[in-house]
C-alpha cells in the first residue's frame, strides 16, 4: 500500500502542456504528434501516463517491466500515431488497449512472473489510501464506479474477466485454472462484458477522452 508521503516522493514531474497544446482535446494532440510535435506527445503522457503505468504495473506486478511497457507505448504512439482511428473509438480506450496488449505480451514472455503471482493475487481488489487532492478525488470516484460495476457481476463472470484482463491468461488457461469448460468461459466473458458495459453506462463521456483532463 502506498502511503501519501511515499507517493509524493516517487511522483514523476508531470509533463507540462505547453507550446500551444493547452486545452486541445486528445484528437487534436494526436494530430500534432503525427506532425512530429514532441510537446503534444508529452501532453498526452501528462494525461494518460499515470493510468497506463498503473495498469501495466497491476498486470505485470513488476515496476521495471511496467516502466518499459509505458515507454514502449508512448514511443509507439510517437512512431505511428496514425494507427489511432478516431472513427473506431476514443483515444484513451485505444491507448489503454495498447498498454494492456503490450503488458500481456510481457507477462507471457516472463512466465516466471506469472508463476510468482497466484490467482488470488490477481483477483485481489486492493483499496487505496491516497491523498484526497482534487485529481485524487476524481480517480477515487472512477475506481468506485468501476468496482461497483464489477461487484454486480456473478462471481464466475467477474473471475473470468479479471483473470484475463489483469492476469493475462488466455481463455483456455482460464478454463484450466477454474476447471471449467472452455465454452463456458467464453460465454461467461461475453455475458460479463455486456453486464459491465450496462453498469458503466454514462461513464465514457465524463471519464474517458475528456479534453484537458488532469490525471
Amino acid at each position: 500500500m502506498t502511503t501519501p508521503g511515499a507517493r509524493r516522493r516517487s511522483a514523476a514531474p508531470r509533463a507540462q502542456e505547453t507550446s500551444g497544446n493547452e486545452g486541445l482535446d486528445d484528437r487534436a494532440l494526436v494530430a500534432r504528434v503525427t506532425e512530429g510535435d514532441g510537446g503534444a506527445l508529452e501532453a498526452l503522457y501528462g494525461r494518460y501516463g499515470r493510468p497506463c503505468y498503473s495498469l501495466a504495473r497491476r498486470i505485470l506486478g513488476d515496476e521495471q517491466l511496467a516502466q518499459d511497457v509505458v515507454q514502449e507505448v508512448f514511443l509507439t504512439l510517437w512512431r505511428d500515431a496514425g494507427r489511432f482511428d478516431p472513427a473506431r473509438g476514443v483515444f484513451a480506450s485505444w491507448l489503454l488497449s495498447m498498454t494492456h496488449h503490450k503488458a500481456v505480451d510481457a507477462v507471457r514472455r516472463e512466465e516466471n512472473l506469472r508463476k510468482r503471482r497466484t490467482t488470488a493475487d490477481i483477483l485481489e481488489d486492493k483499496e487505496v489510501d491516497g491523498p484526497k487532492v482534487h485529481d485524487e478525488v476524481w480517480s477515487t470516484l472512477r475506481r468506485q464506479r468501476v468496482r461497483e460495476a464489477l461487484a454486480t457481476l456473478p462471481d464466475p463472470q467477474r473471475e473470468a474477466l479479471v483473470l484475463a484482463y489483469f492476469g493475462g491468461y488466455t481463455q483456455r488457461e482460464i478454463a484450466g485454472l477454474t476447471d471449467t469448460p472452455l465454452g463456458t468461459v467464453k460465454t461467461r466473458m461475453l455475458a460479463g462484458m455486456h453486464r459491465l458495459k450496462d453498469g458503466l453506462t454514462g461513464l465514457n463521456d465524463s471519464f474517458l477522452d475528456a479534453p484537458g483532463t488532469t490525471l
Binding site: T2, R57, T99
Partner: peptide, 8 residues
C-alpha cells in the same frame, strides 16, 4: 485501468 491502484 481506473479500478487499480493509481501510481505515478
Amino acid at each position: 485501468a481506473y479500478a487499480v491502484e493509481s501510481v505515478d
